[in-house]
Amino acid sequence: MWAFIHKLGSPKWFYAISSRLLPWFWTTAVLLIGVGTVWGLAFAPADYQQGNSYRIIYVHVPAAFLAQSIFVSMAVAGLIFMVWKIKIADMAAAMMAPLGAAMTFVGLFSGAVWGVPTWGTWWMWDARLTSMLILFFLYIGVIALRGAFSSRHSASRAASVLAMVGVINIPIIKYSVDWWYTLHQPSSFSMTSRPSMPADMWLPLLIMVLGFYCFFVAVTLMRMRSEILRRESNKRWVRELAGELS
């Protein structure tokens, strides 16, 4: 087990192991998202209050889940990089950040689109939307900080520290925004307090969430593989792979 983890830390081994894992993650992701989409959009019953507009939940909720999980995994990767100096962890953090920002944007956008039929407006300073917006800014901060350094080593360490500071702050921000919102808007439409969903509704949602996670792992692995080739481009095994050395 330990040997496996040590192997994962080496770019060469990671490249080999990930090439075997990648097809599995892609297949699972495509299957789950395909099944979830068809089930959720075509077969799940319509909501008695919102009609068919609620079906945006099958994109909105998985994206929101991923947006938060990716930030946490980015901070964990940053911690691993700072403590054990494992390069792979930093590559993972660097490759996850744009995907996390994209997922946050998808969550925000689908939330805004969902707002039109439910609230009658594109944007409300709803607690969830507001904390998602702040999360989006945190992602942009991490990406911008990484881009601002000319030395890759400093950039990686600075981005790791910022991701860790951010992940400590996310729950604080989330609870203070919730508190702020309840103070200003005592009653409004809430997703948590409505009657529990029937299984026909939440099963496709669960499948979509799992599918999105597989998609995230697959995309991250794929991006990490190209990042490994880019960063290790002068190593012997990469040049052999590219056919430069016979």
Binding site: I134, G141, A144, I173, S176
Partner: peptide, 23 residues
């Protein structure tokens, strides 16, 4: 501290810090 080594850290600094100021 994160931006002190950067020549144009000013705008980046506000981008990093303002979200953390919200609570």
């Amino acid at each position: 501290a994160l931006t002190v080594g950067l020549s144009r850290g000013g705008v980046l600094l506000s981008l990093l810090v303002l979200p953390l100021y919200i609570p």
